[in-house]
Every structure is written in structure tokens, then in C-alpha cells.
Amino acid sequence: MNTATATRYAYYPGCSLTGTASEYDASVRLVLERLGVELAEIPGWTCCGASAAPAVSALLALALPARNLALAERDLPGCDVLAPCSACYLNLLTARQEARRDHRLHARVQEALEGEHLPWANAAPVRHLLDVLANDIGPARIAAAAQRPLAGLVLAPYYGCQTLRPYAAFDDPEHPTSMDAVLRAAGAEVLEWDKGARCCGASLSTTRRQAALPRIAEILRAAAGADAVVTVCPMCQMNLEAFQRQAGLPGPVAVLYLSQVLGLAMGLDPGQVQLGRNLAVPPGFLARLREVPPAPGEVVQATGTG
């Protein structure tokens, strides 16, 4: 685990964040900068294989993410690898964990990477954005940076699957809570619900839409009491925001990335966190956001920063 002094991370945005989830990427970079965290993008990173590689090649499923870990190790030594995308995160983490568990596997992956003369010692820890926010940075620093706390806003923390499972790296994989403190630090209220770790259907929304829709509907219906659902994964974000009508939702439900929420709380305007790219930010949510009082003088005091 990083100590508070290590504020530099090897940043692995992943393909989605360069495409459909560019708003996630933008807001992550902005927010972490404000929190005094340096993100050094892994030079020459490539795709982690997403959910496709394991379904096609067992070796590629590990070698693709391992290649990126090897790059980080070589070019950004000593840094933890930070991934905001849960699918990327899990692929990276799986490569790391499986190679640690099974040294023959490690050797095979090393062999695959040999063509590029890329050594991989498997030294760099893999961290999810949420992990870093909740545990390295911590609610206190977030609260301190939240100049425009989202008082009165009720948010439903949605973790998705691959953030939590199967490794249970930083949270309870059945009943996660790590986002609660982060959202509270942003001044928001947290919706008590039990769908935060439910599956959104993932790529089934592409391959088997009808199978995915009930998942999406179940989650969004349960979020009825919240002003918005907060995600930490582009896949979840896409599923929850793009298929609301097909899933039979009566009205639109706002779905935001966690980094966007934090950005808003830090006083960034919706444009800066690229709220306009979200597929589901109903006007009602924007109105609620405007109700949030502008930063008063005595901002929530940071407590016990230690």
C-alpha cells in the first residue's frame, strides 16, 4: 500500500477512456490533479484484452494486460498502476495475481513478452481509481478539496462487478462500502441500497441485449430514491445510461462517473467534467445541481488529516 507521500501513479486509461468514455478520462485527470496526485500515463500502453481475450485465448488474456504492467515497470518504476476502468483494472490485476500464484504461468507470459524484449517482474501493484480515492487519498483530503459540497444531493454508489470481484482487493465484494465515504466527503448523501454490487449485464448488452435489460432495469429502479447513480466503470456507465428506455424505465435516471461527481463538488463546472457527453443526465438533475448552494465561507472542515 502506498504511503501518503507517493502521489504519482502509472496511469492506465484503457481504450474506452480514449473513446466512448472520454469524459471519464478527462474528469479523472482533473480531479486527481486537484487532489495533488500526479498521473503519469504509461507510455505506449495497449489494450488489456477486455472481456474478449479470455474468451479467445487464455494466454493473451494474461499477456495483453501484462504487457502494460511491464511497460509501467520499465518506464515508471516504483509507481502503482492506476486504472479507472474496472474491466481494465481486473484484467491487469488478474495478470498480476495469477502470475504471482503460478510461477509457470508467469514464465509463459514472460516468454510471450520476450519478442519485444520486455521483461516483466510483476512488481507494480494494480490499483483501481476507487481504491486510490478511498484509501490513498482518503475522504479527508477529498472533503478538503470539495469547495462546493453537493449538499442535499442523494447519490447511489454503483460499483459494478469487476471492481470488486473476484479478488476482494480493497472492499467487501458482496456489500461494498468504499464509495460511501468518498461521496460523503463530496458533501452528498448516500442512498442505502443493495444493488451497488449487482451485475449490469456487461457486454451482454451488446451480444444479448434482452438478457442484459432486466439487470439494468433492476439496478436503475432500485436507485429511484437517488438523484444520480455514480459509477466507476465505462462498461457499467454505458449500460446504465444507454439502455434506460429499452429497459422500460419510466423516466431518465442520471448516471455519472465518480470522477465527474467529485469534480462538481470541487467546483468544476459541468462542462469541465464533460457532463454533456453523458447519455443520461436529465434536466432535473442539472436543476438539482444548481440548487446546491455555492461554496460558503466555512467549507466543511477537513478533520484529522493526520
Partner: peptide, 12 residues
């Protein structure tokens, strides 16, 4: 098995 969405609930 094509319906698996890799949520890892079963694995867990």
C-alpha cells in the same frame, strides 16, 4: 456460457 457477463459472483 455465452450469457456469462463476467460478474464473478459465482467465483466469489
Amino acid at each position: 456460457f455465452w450469457m456469462c457477463s463476467n460478474c464473478y459472483a459465482c467465483t466469489l
